[in-house]
């Protein structure tokens, strides 16, 4: 199916190339201007890195005639970016890359947008979360860690407030009957260093945010918040690989959480336009650079489009609503 799409694109391009008179009725939509990718987060974070990687891949492999421009609009926990895209209805040259703040920001701050305002394009990957502790600490597994945490006063450092890290923390508290002091920081890198410097007792950093310190022997992963272990077997720290980290559930901590790395278009985008970008992302996924990125960040490489993607997003929204309601993170104003 994918092949037939790209080959028909090829035919269309070839038709243009020989300058046939008249546009064929089946001509596909194509961007006429540079395409903007809005990042509703700051520079250097996971979403920003992914957007810039895509920008580089598209340019390097000549996947699109028009260039991509990455614009960060991080204000108001990402509201700035989402509201900008919501207000650009009918502009097919604007995409937004989302993270969990697609759900958490409107729920937590009452900003006037929701996932329903945007036209879904594709899920490119899911970001994993791992429970990390400082390698100097005596606890080697989840059970020992939770037993120590029961004494109280453990500090959990995380990115942002009422966002994914704090939601996971609240879910752990509920599942294990412990209490953490959650301290929010601006970015995942900063969070990891707080743990290395022993200013915090645990984090739920994404793999890519903490892997360097793991390799350096400073941090220890306890479990991954996914349904099954990660598929990456490459040795990272001694004999340990991503695949050797057990799932939290198997360790008696029943918490699962994955974060969306997906794309949406402006309200009112046509199926033609969506199809163009879906095809583009398929091509991006086939490049070696993309595979390297997935490998480095130990991403869950699930790809979804169309109805499947829409349903997934709706389910996630309900789940975030419930998680945030239980934790008392819903906006009250």
């Amino acid at each position: 199916m994918i092949q037939s799409k790209s080959s028909s694109l090829f035919v269309a391009a070839a038709a243009l190339g020989v300058a046939l008179s008249g546009t064929p009725a089946s001509a596909q939509w194509e961007p006429q201007r540079p395409v903007e990718i809005i990042v509703p987060a700051g520079t250097g974070g996971g979403a920003d890195q992914m957007a810039r990687a895509i920008q580089g891949i598209v340019a390097k492999h000549n996947l699109m005639k028009q260039p991509i421009i990455v614009i960060n609009k991080a204000g108001g926990a990402g509201s700035e970016g989402f509201l900008d895209v919501k207000g650009s209805a009918g502009n097919p040259h604007k995409l937004i890359i989302t993270l969990s703040n697609l759900f958490t920001t409107p729920l937590g701050t009452n900003q006037p947008f929701s996932y329903k305002d945007f036209t879904p394009v594709a899920m490119l990957a899911l970001d994993e979360f791992v429970l990390w502790v400082n390698a100097e600490k005596p606890y080697k597994n989840v059970k020992e860690f939770l037993a120590a945490a029961k004494a109280g006063g453990f500090k959990m450092a995380g990115t942002g407030s009422r966002q994914e890290d704090q939601i996971i923390t609240a879910a752990i508290e509920k599942a294990a009957g412990v209490k953490f002091i959650y301290v929010p920081y601006r970015g995942g890198g900063e969070v990891a260093v707080q743990l290395v410097g022993n200013h915090a007792d645990a984090t739920v950093n994404n793999p890519i945010e903490a892997v360097a310190h793991w390799r350096g022997g400073k941090l220890r992963p306890l479990c991954v918040f996914d349904a099954k272990p990660l598929p990456y077997n490459e040795k990272i720290a001694g004999d340990a690989a991503w695949s050797s980290i057990p799932t939290c559930k198997s360790q008696g901590l029943d918490v699962e959480y994955l974060m969306l790395r997906g794309f949406f278009m402006t309200p009112g985008a046509t199926p033609d336009q969506v199809k163009f970008y879906v095809d583009l992302f398929q091509k991006v996924r086939a490049t070696p650079e993309w595979k390297d990125l997935m490998n480095n960040g130990a991403f869950n490489t699930t790809f979804m489009t169309g109805k499947e993607y829409v349903e997934w997003v709706a389910r996630e929204h309900t789940r975030h609503f419930n998680l945030m309601k239980e934790a008392g993170f819903l906006s009250t104003n």
């Binding site: 700051g42 520079t43 250097g44 890198g189 890519i208 360097a212 400073k218």
Partner: peptide, 24 residues
């Protein structure tokens, strides 16, 4: 892996794309 300035933050993103893991 912690950028000391906004520019360093962008460079950090670059390192990751070039397959270099900043850190000890």
């Amino acid at each position: 892996g912690v950028p000391g300035s906004p520019t360093a933050a962008v460079l950090l993103g670059g390192l990751l794309i070039w397959n270099l893991q900043p850190g000890p």
